[in-house]
């Protein structure tokens, strides 16, 4: 863990306190109505819309000086956008940052949920590009709001039906819609559906921020999260037919790494912290080799 002096000239965590209170009110409402998209007066942030402004605003609103922050993108701490957001909070809040999932109190993420189960007291903040699960079936906000209010979710299953009719199976692989506590249908953000089961009954608080679309939604700890499916075509997650080449982990999400232009491939953990922790425990995959010792 590393501590950082805060850059002067900005309020703690960038946003002014008035704005933070506005965002916190939206977060509280979101927690009270799990899966419901709460509109909020999203502000411009010093990073582009679509690059995590929603997640950053949520993190800024809940961050305290004693928090320990971890930022991941695609499961990795060292991807450019994760680095950039982590540095931002180091500069404007001076908080401790970490790459270790277990040590973090707040984890901001784009596209993945860490492999290690989260525990009580941790908060997972998702960056959300399009919060509306019905958006590509119905482009109008006024109409989708009504559909949520009246629980008109038939269209969602029409899409899944079409998938099966065309492909023999459901062809949605990420941003796979879920139903929360039997009420609201929610977009889990573009995480691979592999991660959907981790949302169910999670001990951690899960917050979702969509800056450009100006919505916040939430899953309080121990919330019922069900991926939509048919009785005879139940929801299934991706399976990889091999373990991680570096740490030998199974039942984890793997990235495909192209090794050469002759079709050479290897598969490694997408969650870099998970992979490194396992390697530190001496666990090895087939390609980790002697050099790792």
């Amino acid at each position: 863990m590393t501590a950082h002096p805060q850059t002067s000239g900005y309020n703690f965590a960038y946003l002014d306190e008035q704005t933070k209170r506005m965002i916190r009110r939206a977060i509280l409402k979101a927690i009270a109505i799990p899966g419901y998209q709460v509109p909020f007066a999203s502000r411009e942030m010093p990073m582009p819309y679509g690059w995590g402004t929603g997640g950053v605003q949520v993190t800024a609103a809940i961050l305290g000086p004693r928090d320990v922050l971890k930022v991941i993108d695609q499961g990795a701490d060292d991807t450019t956008n994760a680095v950039s957001i982590r540095k931002f909070f180091e500069r404007v809040a001076g908080v401790e940052t970490t790459t270790r999932t277990a040590d973090a109190t707040i984890i901001q993420t784009r596209h993945r949920i860490p492999e290690a189960p989260l525990r009580e007291g941790q908060v997972l903040v998702y960056q959300v590009p399009i919060p509306e699960p019905l958006r590509f079936l119905e482009p109008r906000e006024t109409e989708t709001r009504k559909m949520h209010a009246l629980e008109e979710y038939g269209l969602m299953h029409v899409k899944l039906y079409e998938d099966i009719a065309r492909n023999g199976h459901i062809a949605t692989t990420y941003a796979y819609p879920v139903k929360i506590e039997g009420r609201y249908v929610m977009d889990p953000s573009p995480t691979p559906k592999f991660d959907n089961p981790k949302m169910h009954m999670s001990e951690a608080l899960q917050l979702f921020g969509a800056g450009r679309e100006k919505r916040i939604y939430a899953l309080p700890p121990y919330t019922d999260v069900v991926s939509l499916d048919f009785e005879d075509h139940p929801f299934e997650v991706q399976r990889f037919d091999r373990p991680c080449a570096l740490c030998g982990a199974e039942q984890v999400y793997l990235d495909e790494v192209v090794l050469d232009d002759r079709g050479g491939r290897m598969f490694v953990c997408s969650d870099t912290d998970h992979c490194e922790s396992r390697q530190a425990q001496g666990l090895r995959g087939e390609l980790s080799g002697e050099a790792a010792q």
Binding site: E152, Y153, G154, L155, H157, V158, Y161, E162, I164, A165, D229, F230, E231, D232, H233
Partner: peptide
């Protein structure tokens, strides 16, 4: 719905009221 199949057009109302068995639909 002109851009979804005939089967889904017929099945939509059933799905809207909670039918969740693809084979039966």
């Amino acid at each position: 719905r002109m851009t979804v199949s005939a089967g889904a057009n017929v099945g939509e109302r059933l799905m809207a009221v909670g039918h969740r068995h693809y084979g039966e639909l």
